[in-house]
């Protein structure tokens, strides 16, 4: 009897959240889907049916194709960079060094600051000017005699997105480090000890025992970092402004909606972004929830 009451109560407790999510997320997604299937262009709403026209046009739109390539480049470099830097830092900090707490906090702090704040600094740092106008990292490298490192950063043809990813790695690698450090600390010392007794080298212990155990952490980190990279927007605007070689779908969506009042096309880009996130996230959710159920 009281159990039934509690079931009702438990449903009642989550209902506000479900209603809110239902309206603010799924309701708005439904609105976007509807707009993406319309001809709405201009300030006045126009819900006349356009079918999949907006989507089909996007796939032959040279700008959108640039965007897709840029997103792939950015995502790969950003995610791999964060994982590599994060894992390396975590392994180093896991050695019980003096000053560990200091380094931990220091590596984590960039995620506390938004790109509204640091964007200009990154713009200065990655200034590609040469000669007597040289500044930023290039000037630093040149003064340190590291001239081979001087490059044109985000203006590098075809690979400019890699420079943008560098700033993003700066922001999120500390967070990845924290995730990995948590994972490392959760591995019982007994497992290492047992391997050492068996005569395994430190290197083999990491490659054969520790890294496989960190796989779930890697997966979670990839999901979190992956969705950040699909939505990257203000970072690029802050560093490079709006320019086509560094265009991504989120910027195209913003410009076509608010500069061109092409609401239906903007909504179609938004839905495609969401779908690509779904491709990433649904197998993950399925996998984690199922493996949980097995336990």
């Amino acid at each position: 009897m009281s159990k039934n009451k509690d079931t009702v109560l438990s449903i009642a407790l989550v209902t506000p959240s479900i209603v809110a999510v239902g309206i603010f997320i799924y309701g708005f997604i439904a609105w976007s889907v509807r707009v993406s299937l319309s001809n709405w262009k201009g300030l006045l709403p126009d819900y006349s049916w356009a079918g999949l026209k907006n989507y089909i046009n996007l796939f032959s739109d040279p700008r959108f194709l640039v965007d897709v390539r840029n997103t792939v480049v950015f995502t790969v470099i950003f995610v791999l960079g964060c994982l590599a830097v994060g894992l390396a830092l975590a392994i180093m900090l896991d050695q019980n060094l003096k000053g560990e707490a200091f380094f931990r906090s220091l590596f984590l702090f960039p995620m506390a600051i938004s790109f509204i704040v640091t964007g200009v600094v990154w713009r200065w740092l990655m200034n590609p000017a040469a000669g007597d106008r040289m500044s930023g990292f290039n000037l630093l490298f040149s003064n340190l005699g590291l001239d081979f490192l001087v490059n044109s950063w985000h203006l590098t043809p075809r690979w400019g997105m890699a420079a943008i990813a560098l700033a993003a790695i700066w922001q999120m690698s500390g967070y990845t480090m924290a995730l990995y450090l948590g994972g490392l600390r959760a591995i019982p010392d007994e497992i290492r000890e047992a391997a050492r007794v068996d005569g395994a080298s430190e290197f083999r212990i990491y490659t054969n025992i520790i890294f496989p155990l960190l796989r779930p952490v890697t997966l979670s980190a990839m999901i979190i970092l992956g969705h950040i990279s699909l939505k990257v927007f203000d970072l690029i605007i802050a560093i490079a402004g709006k320019q086509l070689p560094l265009d991504v779908p989120a910027i195209y969506m913003w410009q076509t909606t608010f500069d061109g009042y092409f609401f239906s096309r903007g909504a179609a880009i938004g839905i495609l972004l969401l779908l690509s996130v779904a491709v990433l996230i649904i197998p993950y959710l399925y996998y984690t929830l199922r493996s949980e159920a097995e336990i």
């Binding site: 200034n127 000017a129 044109s152 203006l155 490079a240 320019q243």
Partner: peptide, 8 residues
């Protein structure tokens, strides 16, 4: 200039 895209 070659660095036009990075200048305001």
């Amino acid at each position: 200039n070659t660095d036009a895209a990075s200048l305001s």
